[in-house]
């Protein structure tokens, strides 16, 4: 299986007033086609930097980022992004917001096909009937769903989710997890999910990568066994508890609160 995303030994530092601040140090990460990798780690460890590198919004100081066997040097239209803050253009309807990427990336779709696609995605995430509403009329969870549609509308190869559910309440968040599974079944994508929520990581991803504290490197990788369609009940099994425990421990190591004697992955 070829890797769709290949991040090889990336180093990156931000220039600050008090000298360079290294955020990534020897980070390596691969995502196979159709894979969904969750990246967890302590706050401020460089997770968002990672998304910017994959999106081509930033160039690493050292190391390489490859997408589809091509070196990423600049932004590319084959990436879709959704952030914790689901920014919407308040002056547009939800439908027009979802269609925004199609105005920028070259597309073969006609105007009406574009609209059909946007409507289809909105339906998929349960926003049918809200197409003509303004973003200000939607709740946080609904905006985040619309933001997900916008990230997918141009059929990107890679979906980058930077803590998309972080600002939502627990119930809304679980709703959105289930919607993510439904979307992935209908609209397969290769994804990277940045998150703080360990339950979210094991429920959504097929691999969880723990980053060390800043400067971040790959500290630990956990494969989530494939068990068919996932149900939210999966989170209440002993296996899930074991995985969460392992991840929890790795985060403590990353935070420097536990000794790193058993980091063997």
């Amino acid at each position: 299986m070829t890797n769709l995303i290949d991040i090889k030994n990336v180093r990156h530092a931000y220039k600050t007033a008090s000298g360079p601040l290294p955020v990534l140090d020897g980070l390596t990460l691969s995502v196979p086609e159709g894979g969904f990798v969750a990246v967890v780690g302590p706050s401020g460890c460089g997770k968002s930097t990672l998304t910017k590198l994959v999106a081509g919004l930033m160039k690493p100081d050292e190391g390489e980022v490859w997408l589809h066997g091509e070196r990423v040097k600049s932004p590319r239209s084959t990436v879709g992004m959704a952030f914790q803050n689901p920014v919407m253009l308040e002056w547009r309807s939800i439908l027009k917001n979802v269609m925004l990427p199609l105005e920028i990336v070259p597309t073969k779709l006609t105007k009406s096909q574009q609209e059909d696609r946007a409507r289809y995605l909105l339906d998929l995430v349960g926003l049918k009937g809200f197409e003509d509403k303004r973003p200000s009329e939607l709740s946080g969870g609904m905006r985040q769903r619309a933001s997900l549609c916008r990230a997918l509308v141009h059929q990107p190869d890679v979906l980058i989710l930077d803590e998309p559910f972080g600002a939502l309440d627990a119930f809304t968040r679980e709703d959105l997890w289930q919607i993510m599974h439904q979307v992935k079944a209908k609209e397969p994508f290769t994804g990277v999910l940045i998150t703080h929520d360990l339950r979210e990581s094991i429920y959504l991803a097929d691999q969880v990568v723990v980053l060390s504290g800043r400067p971040a490197r790959t500290q630990f990788t956990l494969d989530i066994p494939e068990t068919g369609p996932r149900d939210i009940d999966m989170l209440y099994t002993p296996e899930a508890a074991d995985m969460l425990h392992t991840l929890r421990h790795q985060i403590e190591i990353a935070q420097g609160r536990a000794p790193a004697e058993d980091t063997a992955a």
């Binding site: 920014v87 920028i104 141009h154």
Partner: peptide, 23 residues
């Protein structure tokens, strides 16, 4: 302007001019 606005369009390869007019 929140950086996310810019990032969403920039990640699609939009130019500064496009970002100005659209957002």
């Amino acid at each position: 302007l929140e950086p996310e606005y810019r990032d969403i369009l920039r990640s699609l390869g939009a130019s500064q001019t496009t970002i100005f007019w659209k957002i």
